[in-house]
Design a protein around this nucleic acid. Sequence first.
DNA 1: TATTATTTTGTAAGCGCTTACATTTTGCAA
DNA 2: TTGCAAAATGTAAGCGCTTACAAAATAATA
Lengths: 336, 336
Amino acid sequence: MATIYEVSEAAGVSLATVSRVMNGNAKVSERTRQKVLDAMESLGYQPNAIAQSLASNRTNSIGLLVSELHGSYFGDLMSTVEQVLKNNGKHVIITAGHVDEKSELEAIDFLKSRRCDALIVHAEAVSDDYLKALAQSEVPVAVINRQVTGIESRCFVVDNEKGGYIATKAVLDQGHKQIGYISGPLLKKDARDRLAGHFRALAENGIERAQSPIYEGDYHELSGQNGCLTLLKETPGLTAVICANDEMASGAMTAAREAGVSVPQNLSVVGFDNVLFSRYLFPKLTTVENPISAMGEMAANWILQEVYNVKSKQPIEHLFVPELVARASLGRAPDA
Amino acid sequence: MATIYEVSEAAGVSLATVSRVMNGNAKVSERTRQKVLDAMESLGYQPNAIAQSLASNRTNSIGLLVSELHGSYFGDLMSTVEQVLKNNGKHVIITAGHVDEKSELEAIDFLKSRRCDALIVHAEAVSDDYLKALAQSEVPVAVINRQVTGIESRCFVVDNEKGGYIATKAVLDQGHKQIGYISGPLLKKDARDRLAGHFRALAENGIERAQSPIYEGDYHELSGQNGCLTLLKETPGLTAVICANDEMASGAMTAAREAGVSVPQNLSVVGFDNVLFSRYLFPKLTTVENPISAMGEMAANWILQEVYNVKSKQPIEHLFVPELVARASLGRAPDA
DNA sequence: TATTATTTTGTAAGCGCTTACATTTTGCAA
DNA sequence: TTGCAAAATGTAAGCGCTTACAAAATAATA
C-alpha cells in the first residue's frame, strides 16, 4: 500500500504538503493541490487511518456499547447512531456487554484502548459510581437509557414512569377495571419506574392496588407467558394485562391463546417498547413507543457538538417522552 | 494517560522490556516482569492500541460489512461473529452497506483504511468482479452468503436451491397440489436458486409449472401481502403459499387473515430464513432455517486460522445445508 | 578462575502520519 | 526596480509503540 511518502515523491512536494491537501485545513495552491491529487489517484493511495490517529490524537471513531448485537431494540439504536455519525464523517465501533459487569467493563476498556474520541454506552451491569468516574475521565461519555445522579447532563433517558402511566391510562380509558401487570425485574430502575406509573394511573382512577395483581417477570417472553397464565388463574375477572415490555406481551398473548382466551375480545394486552416485531404479532400489539432511536440520535448529536464542534440542528434534550401506539390488542372492556 | 515511557521509568527498565512483558512473546526474568507489572498497575497503564497497531502492523480487528445494523438476520450474524472473535482476543468493526453499491464500496474502503487484519463481507450491491479483486488484494476476505466464481474458497454460502426444494417438498408431503410461490427479486441469485429448488420439487412430484403460480416479490413484507392477495385471487383452488423469506411470509399471513382465509386450515404458509420473529407470528411459521449464524461462525474461524494461525476445532466448510423448521403454519391440504 | 554459551536487557530505528516553525516564493506598493 | 507582507512550501520533531540488533548479565563448562 502506498504511503504518504510515495505520494510526496511522485508529486514532487513535501510530506507536509500532501498532508495539507488531504486534510484541507491549510492553504495549498491550486496547482500543487492538483499535482498531489493526481499522484494519489495514480498510486491508489489510501491514507492510513491508524497513523493519522496516532499523529493527530483523533480517531474519528465513537465507541458504542450495547447489551446485545441482536434484537430490535439495539438494532434500532445501532442503526440510528451509525447513520447520524456516518453523515458527519465519523464512525462507530460497536461492542456488546451482555448485561454482565465484567464484560461491560472489558468492553469499555477496549473502546478506551482504541482511543475512541467519545463513548455512547448502554450499560446495565456496571455501577452508577463507575459511570460517574468514567464521565469524569478524559473521554466524553453519553449514557443511554439510564439516569445517573450527578451526570444528568450526559444521560439520555425516556420517562419510564410516564410510559407506565400512559399504558395503564389507555387501558383504563377502555373501561377496564381488573387489570393485571407483568413487570420487569424490579431491581432494574426502568422496571420500577414503569410500575410506579402504572400505580399512579390506577390511583388516579380510584382503583385499589389490591385489586390489581402484579407478576414480576424478567423481560423475556417466557416470563410473560407464565405471568399471564398465573394472573388469569388467580384473578378470574381479569380483562386486561399490561406488560412492561413487548417480549413479555408476546408471551402473554401466547398464554392467552393457549388458554382459549381471545385477544382482545376477552383479554386486552398492552406492551412497552414498540420493537419491530410488535407489528408482526397477531393481533398487532398496542404498546408504548420507547424512543430509543431518538435517544441514540440525540446522544450522537450531543457528541458531535461536544467533541467535534458540529452544531446540532435540534436543541439537545435529555428526557424523552414516550407515546402510546394504539393497535389491535387493546379493546374495550367486555363488561364496560 | 500513562504511556509505556512512564511505565519503563517507574519500573526502572527500558521501553523494550515493558513491551516484552506486555506481549509476553520474548523472555523476561520473573523479577523484572513483576516490577513492570507493578508499575503498570500503579500507573493505571493501558496500552494505546493505535500505537501498537501502527508499530506492529496488526490491528487485531476484523471488519464486518453487513447490509443493515438492524433486523434479526444481521443481528444474528453480528452477534455470532463478535462472539467467536472476541473469544480469541480479536474485535470487530461493523459497518453497514445498506444494499447500495456506493455505500458498500465506501464501507469497505473505510474498513481497509482502518487497517483491519481481515474482512467479513455480506455485500449485496457490489459486483462479483470487485469482490474477486478485493479477495486478490492484501487483506484476507471472507464472503458471506454469496457464491463468487473464482474465489469459492472464501465464500460461505447456504444451499439455497436445496432450501427451496425442502420447503416445497414439505408442502407437497402434506398433500398440497395447488401451490403458489412468492419469490424474492429474481435478479438476486439467492432468489433464483430458491425458486429453482421449488421447481425441482414440483417436477419430482409431477406437478406442472403452469399449475403453480409465481409472484415476484422484493423480500419485504408488503410484497408478501400483495403477492398472497394476487395469488389467492388468480388461483381459486390454492391451498398453500411458499415465500422466499419470512418477512414476505408474514405479509402473506396478514393478507390471508384480511381475506378471511384461515391459516393453516384453508391456506398453509411457509417461509424461509427462520428469523427471530417467525416464532412470534401466529400461527407460528413453518420455515427453512437459514444457518446464518453457522456461516458467520465458520467465516470467523476461517479468518482465525488463516490470519492468526489459530487452529479451528471444526473443519472449515463452505456450503451450508438448510433444514426445515416445522411449526404451525403448514397443515395438511384440506382436500387431501 | 577463565572462557564460552545462554539468557536477559538496552539502544535505536522505524511504523505513516500531523503540525509547529522556518524558509522560500509570490504579489503588490512604493 | 526594491522592499515587505502574505501566501505557499519545506524541515523536522514527535505521536506511543515494536523489534532487529547490540550489549550486558548470568550460567555452564573446562
